[in-house]
Design a protein around this nucleic acid. Structure first.
Lengths: 235, 235
DNA sequence: GTCTATAGGCGGATAGAC
DNA sequence: GTCTATCCGCCTATAGAC
């Protein structure tokens, strides 16, 4: 009997995965706003009502896709960070930036789902906030390492931003200098600006050599958080 | 008879404006992907087939909204630039950044339409590229003024980016040093990253004092393109 | 320019049989 | 868990009368 239940659970997991895979294809074809359980079911050769046994509503399916996307880009960022823990923080920074960009270019529709326009009428539940913070935490990890090493030299904050920077530091970057926390959050937002322009087509007829451009921009972002390249870098 | 035609043309212009206004309300409620001529017609007390006399298809209506949005944010940026042509370039930079942000916060759905995820199945026609470049041109104007004045001191570009930066300069920033052109494009993408995080809700539970944070980030962006604040600035 | 009517689709969600 | 059947809504687009 435990075998039976085991088989049932395995089947459920497989069908759930198949539904999400097909839903990701629908996401690419029609966008998140038009994601429909019916279309997924049709493509899968099922009947729409059967899907309600796996996802109680369209929004629950969307939530699952959003969490998967955050976990996917988060894992890519964490892997890049892990590969470079012993490298100079500057190199680790560049590696994580590239990992996020590479993930976005490989999964443009999932990127749009989490960093593009919000889906009208959908409000993300609490369950997404953990996965959503993984990429940011990778950057915090780099800043901590740099701070523990030769340090991060950044100009003092304007007085107006000091209380807010202190609060942010206490909330998710305990131990970092507040000006580093503020610079980190800004750099993270700016990085997605660069990636969004590339993924969403805003660079069409503007930037052709995206590789060279991104490399330079990521280096500038590193500079903005106080990270300096190793001496033997390209001029 | 010219009076009759004049009256007809006036009526046509008024109805067209009413359709676009209602469409913008639908955009806010349902998003661009679900914008429908029928819903607009219903809300206006018309019948859907009547709208086809004004916009031959749903995509043509969308194109009109996109062009209006680019023109609207472009006009806001140009006005901020015009107000500050005689001010130090650094101050003008901050003013234009704020103008774009203020516009985005006042028109979040139009902002999403032009800088958010692309609408699946829709491809923007050539007619949008002129209006789309107005904001960028305001930034180029500031850089030109600074370059003509005490200059913009930026480190040399990595060799890999030099040909691309030269091409970009020739295409839309003739006369600027190539490293300034590259920095300008990057800053523009990064600015929309900051604004998107705020408008799209990515700063929820992360950044509370958005005003102070944006002021600091815009100043950092100015620094990134080589603009320095006037001596009497806040530390 | 606006109307009715129509063709030929799409969707979410549920009830009840098997 | 999957099926059929069903309710009730939505959409683009066109034809043809007025």
């Amino acid at each position: 009997m435990s075998t039976v239940r085991g088989a049932r659970e395995r089947a459920r997991i497989e069908v759930t995965a198949a539904i999400k895979d097909e839903a990701r294809r629908r996401l690419a074809a029609e966008g998140a706003a038009k994601l429909s359980l019916r279309a997924v079911a049709r493509e899968l050769g099922m009947v729409s009502s059967a899907l309600y046994r796996y996802f109680p509503s369209r929004d629950d399916l969307l939530t699952a896709l959003i969490i998967d996307a955050y976990d996917s880009v988060g894992a890519a960022a964490e892997a890049a960070r892990a590969r470079t823990v012993t490298a100079p923080p500057y190199d680790s920074w560049i590696a994580v930036c590239r990992a996020v960009r590479d993930w976005a270019l490989a999964h443009p529709h999932e990127y749009a789902l989490i960093y593009g326009s919000p889906v009208p009428g959908y409000s993300a539940p609490q369950a997404t906030v953990g996965p959503a913070s993984r990429v940011g935490n990778a950057f915090v990890s780099i800043a901590r390492a740099a701070h523990a090493g030769r340090g991060l030299a950044l100009p003092p904050l304007p007085t107006a931003l000091r209380p807010e920077a202190a609060r942010m530091t206490a909330d998710f970057a305990e131990g970092l200098p507040p000006e580093v926390t503020a610079a980190l959050v800004a750099a993270w937002a700016q990085l997605t600006g660069l990636i969004s322009f590339e993924v969403f087509g805003q660079f069409n007829r503007v930037v052709e050599d995206r590789e060279a451009f991104f490399a330079h921009a990521a280096a500038q972002l590193a500079h903005g958080v106080g990270l300096m390249p190793s001496p033997r870098a390209d001029a």
